[in-house]
Design a protein around this nucleic acid. Structure first.
Length: 584
RNA sequence: CGGGGCGUAGCGCAGUCCGGUUAGCGCGCAUGCUUCGGGAGCAUGAGGUCGGCGGUUCAAAUCCGCCCGCCCCGACCA
């Protein structure tokens, strides 16, 4: 491509509404332009990168037997009501009506559509396994689109769906995806790791996420400093720090006028927050449930949801008063009737705790679970905190931000059961199809690659995602020799199948260098009169500081050699995929 | 949805508090000449419903009201 003819509108200044690096650089390098909140147009350079990411994904899913579909984005409301997700997704679904007032929606994902096809065409165990996928637009009316392309309201997702006759089949499909995903992100040049995840509205049993660590990431992930343990904060576990008991003998009531919060009460009584117990009153499926958590811990609502479904909320102040007889701040489990009591496992061994007395301005001290109050069950309900230790090896855990690149789920029979997608097994018995669902956000591959690979001057593209591989930069197009050699190099690179761009504009060198750094292709070749006197040009890999002086006749072979070296590194990583969890 | 910020030329901003000529600056753009190894110089020029609607006033970018849009921070997802 000749830059003089290309549409690559770079920006010298950063648009004021871009905060994170990937958003800023994608705008500045002319990859995208905003249209409305959370919706972007891809300009030629950006779309080339997107197509490369999608192609890597396509190749790897094909490799494990995937068959690509093209599925409609417009779909009937009823299909989504069939699985209950019309309400579960709620306002997240874009809704519209056609001219005859039929209610339609824009698919936020495609499990329902796939299951609909499966139920009409998969009849026998002999028809399976199947692995179907698509790489297409999804629409979600996000509560809060943000960070540029990282969370848009329209985004391109690869989602594959495995259809199997039994659990073993699903396990195999899941495993193949796990491996394919690792290959995809290695080939995309990303740092990533796999974490245990929560299934959310997808339902199903096991699920894992592929995470790209970066400060711009919206997910919080727990990772052991020593062993392989890694989990999304939503489901992560840890060993809580031990507590020094206060040494109270037996329980007693103390006057704590106007002391409501953990901080207030602990300061008032001269103890530490961990000596207290939070008594949180929730309404779960219209019934009151008291949740007990150590004073310095936080309730993890994701864990609660995994346990009891999504129909819950904190009790209102007046409800709390009706149920316990006390105002918020003085609630407790002692003497509480007609409410279930759920206790976090972090409190199981604990004695000698302080909590509300169910009487305004009073707390109880010296309480011990089960002795002084009833516990209906112990559950893991709390958030992991910084500085806690790993449940597997006891070493410290780290809390880091990451971008969720992909998510793999064992759905099981949730969708096939609710939509009636069944088949006959070898003994003639009717069974629901066992399904898996596997997603990857294509723009997140691009955004994560930029987040992880940039400097103050611009993007540093991984070779495999770069819109072009080579950038030829003639320093002065008005110099005949420079112009001739540059054009000859351009022609020969093209002939040899390299993706090359030449900056044939009559611009000042400074501007050309700045643009080259900004759009950040892997290899740059500077052609200037100075070096050309000795027949040399400069080879500058974007990710290195060094500039190599090479004979212009050797430029092609030098670039090819460097590209080959990068592919070798990639191949080496790919070979190690099968058993490993962490890639850095 | 709750909280905060912003909306003036393609982009980045000043002017708004305290109303008063013809609404400015930088970048970019156009034309010409000069320049050519890290966002060149000079000259000339084009480009604006000051987010929208309504109100106050002799007079509104500026004050008031309503609305719209965008960004950032908190609960959901690829």
């Amino acid at each position: 491509m000749k830059l003089s003819q290309a549409f690559i509108p770079t920006l010298k200044e950063t648009p004021s509404d871009a905060e994170v690096a990937s958003h800023r650089l994608m705008l500045r390098a002319g990859l995208i332009r905003p249209l409305v909140a959370g919706v972007y147009s891809y300009l030629p350079l950006g779309w080339r990168a997107m197509r490369k990411a999608a192609q890597i994904v396509r190749e790897e899913i094909d490799r494990i037997g995937g068959q690509e579909f093209s599925l409609p984005t417009l779909s009937p409301k009823e299909l989504w009501q069939g699985t209950g997700r019309y309400d579960e997704f709620g306002d997240l679904i874009f809704k519209l009506k056609d001219r005859r007032n039929r209610e339609l929606c824009l698919a936020p994902t495609h499990e329902e559509v796939i299951t609909d096809i499966a139920r009409t065409s998969i009849r026998s165990f002999r028809d399976m396994p199947q692995l179907w996928y698509q790489i297409q637009l999804k629409h979600r009316d996000e509560f809060r689109p943000r960070s540029g392309v990282l969370r848009g309201r329209m985004f391109i997702m690869k989602d594959s769906y495995s259809l199997d006759a039994d659990q073993e089949g699903l396990d195999a499909a899941y495993h193949r995806h796990r491996e394919a995903y690792s290959r995809i992100f290695i080939r995309s040049g990303l740092k990533f790791f796999v974490v245990q995840a929560s299934s959310g509205v997808m339902g199903g049993s096991e699920s894992e996420e592929f995470m790209a660590p970066t400060a711009a990431g919206e997910d919080t992930v727990i990772r052991c400093s020593q062993c392989d343990y890694a989990a999304n904060l939503e489901v992560a576990q840890s060993v809580p720090k031990p507590v020094q008991p206060l040494g109270e003998k037996g329980s007693r009531k103390v006057h704590t006028p106007d002391q409501r919060t953990i901080d207030e009460v602990s300061a008032f009584l001269g103890c530490r927050p961990e000596n207290l117990m939070k008594s949180l009153l929730y309404i779960i499926e219209d019934k009151p449930v008291m949740i007990l958590i150590r004073g310095d811990h936080e309730l993890n609502e994701n864990k609660l949801m995994a346990l009891r479904g999504s129909n819950f909320r904190p009790a209102e102040a007046d409800e709390a008063l009706n149920i316990t007889g006390a105002n918020l701040g003085f609630l407790g489990p002692v003497g509480l009737k007609d409410a279930e009591i759920l206790c976090d496992i972090g409190l199981r061994e604990q004695t000698d705790v302080i909590t509300g007395a169910n009487e305004d301005d009073y707390h109880l001290v010296g309480l011990t679970p089960e002795k002084d109050f009833q516990v209906d069950s112990y559950q893991d309900l709390r958030h992991v905190k910084e500085g806690e230790n790993c449940i597997h090896c006891g070493k410290p855990l780290n809390i880091i931000n990451a971008i969720e690149l992909g998510h793999i789920f064992k759905l099981g029979t949730k969708y096939s059961t609710s939509l009636g997608a069944t088949f006959l097994d070898s003994s003639g018995e009717k069974k629901p199809i066992v399904m898996g669902s596997y997603g990857i956000g294509i723009e997140r591959i691009i955004a994560a690659a930029i987040e992880q690979n940039h400097d103050e001057d611009g993007i540093i593209w991984p070779l495999t995602l770069a819109p072009y591989e080579v950038h030829i930069l003639p320093i002065d197009m008005t110099n005949d020799q420079v112009s001739t050699v540059s054009k000859a190099l351009y022609a020969s690179f093209r002939e040899h199948g390299l993706e090359v761009l030449i900056d044939d504009r009559e611009e000042s060198p400074g501007k050309k260098f700045k643009d080259a750094d900004l759009i950040g292709f892997p290899f740059r070749i500077n052609v200037g009169a100075r070096s050309l006197k000795e027949g040399k040009v400069e080879l500058k890999p974007r990710h290195e500081r060094t500039v190599l002086q090479i004979d212009h006749k050797n430029a092609l072979s030098a670039v090819k050699k460097m590209m080959e070296e990068r592919h070798d590194v990639e191949r080496e990583k790919l070979e190690k995929v099968s058993e490993k969890n962490i890639f850095t």
